[in-house]
């Protein structure tokens, strides 16, 4: 790993200032960034830790729904979000492993936007709002393809606001080695309709499955999607699963998520 200066600001304002250095990179839980730096695929000159900023941590109900501070570790979301948004808590409880969940954060996951990460599906399916030090970004505008987001250089996610659905569930099928999602489907039913977001499957990153949303909005039952098919051509095909296999998983897991949501 290349060396760097490590800074740990205590406020968002100081973090924003630190991010102004050339070659600065924000560090949240580090569970993806640090392995990447070990491989010398990332070589920041200044690493700005966001884990010492108390205003970026915590889970609470507020305007627009459940507010989760961007530097809140998965384990805290798993423990504290369950009462109001059990599907989200369950998703957080299934990311990585316990040690990863102690450190990894929702903000880090969303900023990285790994195409196989779990959180993007919850954010997209919930129509959540990604709040940064500069603005509020709707989930539908935030995700822009694998490892690509609406964030500008130096922009820091500070919190995420999730509207609470009537019913929801996340079903994940593990990639057997990494334990990331080979495919994961988050289904959320709101008064205005059902949203279905899929992670892990598409070469374009997390996406909404519009046909399923329409079918499930009309009839929220696993059988409602029986007649649908998923186009395999845009799916990821790799040694863990062919394109056709992932397309199948999207449908199977959507059905299971609907059943789990009840």
């Amino acid at each position: 790993m290349h060396n760097f200066d490590f800074v740990k600001p205590a406020s968002i304002a100081d973090a924003v200032k630190a991010m102004g250095h050339d070659g600065a990179q924000a560090l949240s839980g580090g569970q993806t960034l640090i392995p990447t730096m070990k491989q010398r695929l990332a070589a920041p000159t200044v690493l700005v830790s966001l884990t010492g900023i108390s205003e970026m941590k915590g889970v609470c109900m507020g305007e627009g729904g459940l507010h989760i501070g961007a530097a809140t570790p998965h384990a805290v979301v798993a423990a504290e979000a369950g009462a109001v948004y059990p599907a989200l808590a369950a998703l957080a409880a299934g990311i990585g492993d316990p040690a990863v969940r102690s450190k990894g954060t929702i903000g880090g996951s969303l900023a990285n936007n790994d195409p196989a990460a779990c959180y993007p599906s919850a954010v997209l399916a919930s129509g959540a709002t990604v709040v940064t030090n500069r603005r509020k970004i709707a989930a539908d505008d935030y995700f822009q393809g694998m490892f690509t987001t609406a964030l500008d250089e130096g922009e820091i996610i500070t919190e995420v606001v999730f509207p609470i659905p009537q019913k929801a569930a996340y079903v994940k099928f593990n990639q057997p080695a990494s334990r990331f999602a080979l495919t994961g489907v988050f289904v959320a039913k709101y008064p205005g309709g059902v949203r279905v977001a899929v992670t892990g499957a598409s070469a374009s990153g997390v996406f909404r499955w519009a046909e399923a949303e329409a079918a499930l909005s009309a009839n929220f039952a696993a059988g409602a999607i029986a007649g649908l098919t998923v186009d395999a051509s845009g799916m990821i095909g790799d040694l863990h699963g062919t394109q056709a296999y992932r397309a199948n998983l999207v449908k199977v897991l959507t059905g299971r998520a609907v059943t789990a949501a009840g």
Partner: peptide, 11 residues
Amino acid sequence: VSPSRVWTAMN
């Protein structure tokens, strides 16, 4: 006999 291989063989 990974999930993908089993599913592909079945189908």
